[in-house]
Design a protein around this nucleic acid. Sequence first.
DNA 1: TACCAACGTTGGCGCTACCAACATATATGT
DNA 2: ACATATATGTTGGTAGCGCCAACGTTGGTA
Lengths: 151, 151
Amino acid sequence: MDIEDAPAPLRRLPSWLVSQAALVAQRTVNNRLGPIGGQRREFSLLTALDESGPDSQAALSRRCGVDRSDMVALVNDLARGGLVERRPDETDRRRNVVSLTAAGRNRLQALREVIAAAQDELLAPLSPSERDRLVALLTTVLEHHPPAMPA
Amino acid sequence: MDIEDAPAPLRRLPSWLVSQAALVAQRTVNNRLGPIGGQRREFSLLTALDESGPDSQAALSRRCGVDRSDMVALVNDLARGGLVERRPDETDRRRNVVSLTAAGRNRLQALREVIAAAQDELLAPLSPSERDRLVALLTTVLEHHPPAMPA
DNA sequence: TACCAACGTTGGCGCTACCAACATATATGT
DNA sequence: ACATATATGTTGGTAGCGCCAACGTTGGTA
């Protein structure tokens, strides 16, 4: 489906456009992540850990916008690959502390480059100022809307 | 997750922003569709039929950006609800012709109103010209990227 | 006629977003 | 202090959506 084939009323619906654009974005990123066996959520988690250091799974869930239950599987995957370490928190024995390993840091760097390239591909038809504008508009929309997961 | 809780590197990634915005958009639409038992694909199909009249499932698949196999189930659902009619095409016996019923037309009108309200909610923080700008930017991005389903 | 292309259909896979429930551990209020 | 509420990790399940492979039927083409 090219966009010009889609029904005209849909082509003007912001919610439809943004959903279609998200599909394109995800395909673009995944096409580049596939060859190195990466996933989008992996990048989110590694990024969060790199930015703020070790943290509990629940805190990471909130910051990454991922459900607690999904974070379990995500940490399992990355821990199996040695990119991340999970150990019980001695001061609060409900928690696990998840931390980045050296391998995880290397992995993150590789993902960063791949994902940066995907951004360029995605925004190819836009000028630099248009790209800024798009980012600003989307940010405004997101800032206005409540968090996804109050649970 | 509020956007300001998300890792900073993510907050600047266009692919991440557009995916998050799509989530918000889908939640907004679904929250309003839920009470009347509607789905997003239903709206796409009814819209396509209303715009261009009866058509084959394959053609509708292409225009709605839905896989042929998924269109089968979609038409099943809507036909069961009497919103759509499926009959064999006498002139090309490979095809089914799907057409809108009177009930389908009424349903479409109801969906239109609900979805229009969702757009307003989604874009609440944007001025009219900003909304236009966002639509234009997303359209440009979509026009530049190849169709999703060559199959 | 032989071949290829399109169609509808079935069945399946994988990702993502969710929710419910539970046991355990901590925090809070009285 | 004790009862109650809340947070955490975990399991398991649901649902929508996008996508692919294969098959039998039908139509168009070489």
